[in-house]
Structures are given as structure tokens and as C-alpha cells.
Amino acid sequence: MEKVSTKLKNMTDTNLLLTITIVVFILMYIGAVLFQGKGFTKPQAFFNILNNNAALIILSCGMSIVMITGGIDISVGGVTALVSMCCAVYLDYHNGNVAVSMLIALLIGLAYGLVQGFLVAYLDIQPFIVSLAGMFFARGMTTIVNTNPFNVENADFVALKETRIIIPGMGSVNKLGKYVDAYVEIGVVIALIVVIAMFILLRWTKLGRSFYAVGGNKQSALMLGINVKRTKFLSHMICSTLAGIGGYVYFLHVGSGAATHAQGAEMNAIASSIIGGTMLTGGVGNIIGTFFGVLSLSTIKDIVSSAGLDQAWWTGITIAAMLCIFLVIQSVVMARKKRAIRK
């Protein structure tokens, strides 16, 4: 016990919470394998989690960065829907080019970051209110762009959507006795690149460390010579740009535009970040944790749906219960640690 408490004391908050997250995810996955049978042992089951959640991983990375800086952005789900709809309309109704559609996604993200970042950082308006309005705006704009949902039939786009990257050696034999290769979608590759890039950004760049400093104590960061306003602005820029990219990855996964797309994605992103050890008070968090947070969240969802509890409400209730448990664990562990330090 003594040893544990001294170890707790010496660990930084970020590493402590990260450890908890990874341990919990591994336990959960083992639990899933034990109770839900062999489905989860196939590598493809794991890759499917990635395929289905590539967009969420990207959104959560952005969310973590804003949260580490001490802010929040609940507009990411709306931006995802807006990006999907704009790109869909462009590709099908205007016979557009896939590369340009990507540019559109990126521009929407950048524009969001510019406006929200400016309002939060330079006019000092609460990020919650700004991004709340941002969410309203995005959802409303999506229906203004096009009211009805539709599938995109642009040939280039469909080809890109169907592209699968085979992972050698990880395949499995299906029910008919045929060997099926394991695969991931393009979105997963983008998501992994984002995870790595954001990890490097947070760990090894001055800007990344400024995010932590501003989130830890704004006033102190200012006194330490950090440009707090610019740092806040950039955190929102990155988050919204990632929302644009994530939006496109989502679009690539579902292949359609609809106003109801990514409903509640902002909440999932926040939940993933928190499960991954990001503290909403700011200053503590890790991208690797966030990555595992998304995996944990979706594993739970899978367990629930494969347990035959199909009614929609069970998913909601279990995710909520899990979030609740994680928050309580975080709060208890941090309180313990504080007590250990005082002694």
C-alpha cells in the first residue's frame, strides 16, 4: 500500500490516468472475449472497431486538445454533418471532383476554427456558449444546404470509399471455410496519422506544451511568457480543422449526406476523451489515452449489442453508466493522490 501511494505521488497526473485507461480497456476486451465468445478474438473484430470509429478518433483528438487547453468544443458533431452534406451535394449535384471535396471539408473546418477560436480567445467568450451556437449553426446550415438525406453515387468517390487496405497475416477463416483477409478502411489510416501527429504535437513541440500550460493555469501561463490568447486560438483551430477532416472520414465511411449524421458525436468525443484520461479542468490528458478511450467506448457498445440487448435504450444507458464509473474513478483517484502528497 505504501509503495503504491508513493508511486502514485511520483506519477504525473497525465500518466496516471493514461495507465488506468489502458488497463481498463484491456480488461474490458478480455471480458468481451470471455463472455461474448470467439467473435472478439478475430483480428477483424478489432479492425472493425477501428473502421467504424475512425472519424470519432479524429474528432476526439481535437476534443482532447481543446479540453487540455481548458476549453470545450461541442460543435464537432454539427461540423461533421455539415461537411458530409456539403461534400455530398457538391459531388453528386455539381458533379464534383473528389480532391476538391476534400478541400471543401478542410475549408469548412478551418473557417469554424477561425471564427470560434477568435470568439473564444480574443473576445473571451465562454467556449461552451460559442461552440453551442456553432453546433446550432452547423445543424441548421446542413438542412438549409439540403433537407433530404441521400447516398452519393459519384464513381470516383465510391471507389475511394470501397478501397480496403489488407493487413497481411491477420485474416481468418469464415463460416464457409474460406480465408478472408483482414482489412481497414482508408479512414483508419488517416485516423492513425492524426493520432501520431497530435501525439508528437503535444509531447515534443513548444505549442503542445503551451496547451498544457494554459490549461493548467491561464494566469501563470501568461506570466511565464506564453501567448495565452494565441494558444487558445490555435487549440480551437486544430480542433475544428480535425472536425473537418473527421467529418470527411465519416462521410467516406457512410457515403451519404444527412442532417442527422453524427448525432451526439460531440458527446461521444467528450466521453472518449474523459475515459482516456483528459480532465475537463484542463492541463491533463494524452492522445494515446484518447485513442484507447474511443476503443473502450465502442467495445462497450459492441458488447451491449452482441449481448442481445438490442433495444436502443440499453446502449445509451450502458455508455452513461460507463462514463459515470470513469468520472467517479478519476475523481476518487485524484483526491487520493492529493491526500498522499499532503502527507
Binding site: 504525473t12 497526473d13 497525465t14 513548444k206 506544451r209 503551451s210 498544457y212 500550460a213 490549461g215 493548467g216 493555469n217 494566469q219 501563470s220 501561463a221 506570466m223 511565464l224 511568457g225 506564453i226 492541463g283 491533463v284
Partner: peptide, 15 residues
């Protein structure tokens, strides 16, 4: 006026 969530060294060199 330092950041409690960063390491001692970071606090000495940041900014």
C-alpha cells in the same frame, strides 16, 4: 505563477 500540472523543468523553461 507556475503551472502545477507541468514538470519542474518545464516550468523553468517554458515560454
Amino acid at each position: 505563477t507556475l503551472c502545477p500540472n507541468l514538470s519542474v523543468a518545464e516550468n523553468m523553461y517554458i515560454g
